[in-house]
Design a binder for these strands. Structure first.
Length: 387
DNA sequence: CAGCATGATTTAAC
DNA sequence: GTTAAATCATGCTG
């Protein structure tokens, strides 16, 4: 502990004779009235100071004996209070520099992240919710309960455990060390002037040191979580094919709206809802609108690029839709009503000008094809010709 | 393992 | 904001 050495250094520089001028201290006049007497006292004080200064150079037993001697010295109380006063004065100048420092922004960032990831903060309940939220956010709102997800959760709780045990260890070590230092200082305060404020300051220093170690722990924990996230929750890396049922629903819509395969926002929501309901092995528990958009975007471009390849699929779904439509018509007829099963929306065209379309609705095309025996092939051709 | 299928992302146009 | 188009990265199959 070089605190002691520093103190001694500061004390050694104190010229007791100049104290009144320097530190505003006044040696009691009783000791000053006689020059010889004052000289003797000065000599005495110098002697005491010398003993204090050299105490560290001596062996433990010797020092102990010297300490005891000094403690019992008749000048001790007076000198002690003088030294305390000097320290108080010098302490004033350093107090300004060592004021409460503002919370470290870096540490705050780390804390916030750990809290958001569910590593720090409340146990399981809230933490798990935060994890689920993070997972959903990472995979574009898809809160799937897949195998990887539970694996992710397991790994995260492992990180969490390590983090907490380490944190506890640090806290314990910090407390132990603080107690130790405080005891040491309290013990020392019997022989050298140590103000409570000084102890407080020392505790602050220790805590800062330990919190910087804690910050390293938090930093590496954050890194671990980031790595885990990128490995498990990056939707792009962990692409999963949609279930057969979901693809079927989407394909049905696509081929029955081949002339205008652009579902509205409501239609997308409807499709997303329908696809979410479908359950099959490895299926997602939710199906987002953006996934529907992605699917239609991919489907349109891929269909357009190679209509021939999709011909068979188109026929298949056309037949399927035709059967459904036929049932609908049959039901309508049976109800002896003349209303049409579908509302044609004519006069549209593809976003791409090259794909100008016929004015007939896909459903009416399908219905008429049922009776002619021909399925609609492509409603839009790559060369832009109307079919 | 190669090659194709497919969901997601990026970029640029509107 | 949506979209087409290109591209990426992974899943699947022979």
């Amino acid at each position: 502990m070089d605190e002691q050495a520093r103190m001694m250094q500061s004390l050694s520089g104190v010229n007791l004779a100049g104290l009144s001028a320097h530190g505003g201290l006044v040696i009691p006049p009783a000791h000053m009235h006689d020059g010889t007497d004052a000289d003797g006292r000065k000599q005495d004080i110098g002697d005491i100071l010398h003993q204090i200064m050299t105490i560290t150079d001596q062996s433990l037993d010797e020092a102990q004996a010297k300490k005891h001697g000094l403690n019992c010295h008749r000048m001790k109380p007076a000198l002690f209070s003088v030294l305390c006063d000097i320290k108080e004065k010098t302490g004033l100048s350093m107090r300004g520099a060592q004021e409460e420092d503002p919370p470290d922004p870096q540490l705050m960032r780390l804390d916030n992240m750990l809290l958001a990831e569910g590593v720090s903060g409340p146990e399981k309940g809230g933490g798990a919710a935060a994890v689920a939220a993070a997972a959903a956010a990472a995979s574009g709102g898809v809160a799937d309960n897949t195998v990887e997800h539970s694996e992710y959760r397991a790994k995260l709780s492992q990180i969490r455990r390590i983090y907490h045990t380490e944190l506890e260890k640090y806290e314990q070590a910090c407390n132990e060390f603080t107690t130790h230092v405080m005891n040491l200082l309290r013990e020392q305060s019997r022989t050298r002037p140590i103000s409570p404020k000084e102890i407080e300051r020392m505790v602050g220093i220790i805590h800062r040191k330990f919190s910087s170690i804690q910050m390293q722990l938090k930093q590496s924990t954050c890194e671990a979580v980031m790595i885990l996230r990128s490995r498990f929750l990056d939707a792009r890396r962990k692409r999963r094919n949609f279930s057969k049922q979901a693809t079927e629903i989407l394909n049905e819509y696509f081929y029955s709206h081949l002339s205008n395969p652009y579902p509205s926002e409501e239609a997308k929501e409807e499709l997303a809802k329908k696809c979410s309901i479908t359950i099959s092995q490895g299926a997602r528990s939710t199906f987002t609108v953006s996934q529907v958009s992605n699917w239609f975007g991919n489907k349109r471009i891929r269909y357009k690029k190679n209509i021939g390849k999709f011909q068979e699929e188109a026929n298949l779904y056309a037949a399927k839709t035709a059967v459904t439509a036929a049932h609908a018509v049959a039901a309508a007829v049976q109800n002896s009503q003349t209303s049409s099963p579908a509302t044609p929306n004519s006069g549209f065209h593809m976003k791409d000008e090259d794909f100008q379309l016929d004015s007939s609705d896909s459903k009416s095309t399908l219905l008429s094809s049922m009776f002619t025996g021909a399925y609609p092939t492509a409603c839009f051709q790559p060369d832009g010709r109307i079919q």
